[in-house]
Amino acid sequence: MRKTEPSRLGANGGDAAVRPRPSPLGWIRDEFRHMRKNRELLLLALPGIVFKFVIAYLPMVGLILAFKYYRYDQGIFGSKWVGLQNFEFLFKAQDAIRIIRNTLLYNFTYIILGTVAALLLALLMNELTGRLIKIYQTTLFLPFFISMVLVGYIGNAFLDFENGYLNTMLAWFGLEPRSWYLETTPWIFLLPLASLWKGIGFSTLVYYAGITGISTEYYEAAKLDGATRVQMMTRITLPLLKPLVVILFILGLGNIFRGDFGLHYFLPNNVGMNFPTTDVIDTYVYRALTKLADINSAAAVGFLQSVVGLITVVSANALVRRIDKDSALF
């Protein structure tokens, strides 16, 4: 039997041709050709790229301060290397367990509570029509633009011992006023409520935008089958929002080791009596930095927070990818 030559697979051969991998030089040539073709768009994006590089990437040179004993007269690169010595500041601190516990528990609470509440509000907003939807959007989104300094003053108006609104209302019912800033238990509830009030508007609008992107054909077909509004929420809206919810949840986990400094510093008014339930890593490092001027330890803690956040995001994404590949971030 005569041996036949292997057929060359191509466009006419029924199977797709296996393209050879381009050489590095060819890849660079293709990229330059692509950039030349889209030079107008790149020119428009150039200010944003430069801003991102200067603000986010250029300062990363300072990460080496986490491994050095910095001296002003020697500069960043001339200072002495000390290895992991600066990281002992956090783990050997007397309050290390407390501030790490508070940071993790509060962030988990903020993520779970914020996700559930924002989803519920987005589903309810989807049922509204007319001008009411604009009013609710503005009302929910307005606290997002209020600075944490102003939030601290608003909190003081409610919690002040002599003239606070809460103590005034307690007096109406014949109850004794409370020193809110000198107690620890109330802050377990006050901080999550304040975080929810300030951030829920942005999260709600993100989920609402995702809902508006769902094709109306699904809902029309469900109505023809006699589905109720609750059934359409649970069987259509929530399943189609799952990838967006998972992505935002993974991104939220990236800050699990990073406390909300503004919320935990200005709202409790930096009163030492409530530190057991309000102090987080960022506020603790800030006080240590202002009192000891220890730039090295502060840089080490910031570097550690970033590393833990990166590991958390990658691990959470890998777990989601194994369960549902389409819902993974990358």
Score class of each variant (00 low, 15 high):
2 R>H: 14
5 E>C: 03
6 P>E: 11
7 S>K: 15
10 G>Y: 00
12 N>A: 11
13 G>V: 00
16 A>P: 01
17 A>L: 13
17 A>D: 02
21 R>A: 15
26 G>M: 11
26 G>P: 00
28 I>H: 13
29 R>K: 06
29 R>Y: 01
32 F>M: 13
37 K>F: 07
37 K>M: 07
47 P>W: 01
55 I>P: 00
57 Y>D: 10
60 M>D: 04
64 I>F: 03
64 I>R: 11
66 A>E: 02
69 Y>T: 00
73 D>R: 00
74 Q>F: 01
83 G>R: 07
85 Q>A: 14
88 E>T: 14
89 F>T: 03
92 K>N: 12
97 I>K: 15
99 I>Y: 11
100 I>M: 13
104 L>W: 05
107 N>K: 12
107 N>C: 05
111 I>D: 09
112 I>F: 11
113 L>N: 01
113 L>I: 15
116 V>F: 15
116 V>D: 09
117 A>L: 09
126 N>P: 00
128 L>Q: 04
131 R>P: 06
132 L>S: 15
135 I>Y: 13
139 T>E: 03
148 M>G: 15
149 V>K: 12
152 G>C: 10
163 N>R: 14
163 N>I: 02
167 N>R: 07
170 L>G: 14
172 W>E: 13
175 L>Q: 15
178 R>P: 08
183 E>W: 07
184 T>V: 14
188 I>F: 12
190 L>E: 08
190 L>Q: 09
191 L>G: 06
198 K>T: 02
199 G>K: 07
200 I>D: 06
201 G>C: 05
203 S>D: 12
206 V>K: 01
209 A>P: 13
210 G>T: 03
214 I>Y: 10
214 I>W: 08
221 A>E: 07
222 A>E: 00
222 A>Y: 01
227 A>W: 14
229 R>Q: 07
230 V>Q: 11
230 V>L: 15
232 M>Y: 02
234 T>V: 03
238 L>Y: 02
240 L>P: 10
241 L>C: 05
244 L>W: 12
247 I>R: 14
250 I>M: 05
252 G>W: 15
253 L>E: 08
253 L>H: 15
257 F>V: 04
259 G>W: 05
260 D>I: 13
262 G>W: 05
264 H>S: 03
265 Y>P: 08
265 Y>G: 09
273 M>C: 09
274 N>T: 03
280 V>Y: 15
287 R>N: 15
290 T>C: 14
290 T>Y: 12
292 L>C: 03
296 N>Y: 06
310 L>F: 14
311 I>P: 05
314 V>S: 07
316 A>D: 08
319 L>E: 07
324 D>E: 07
330 F>Q: 10
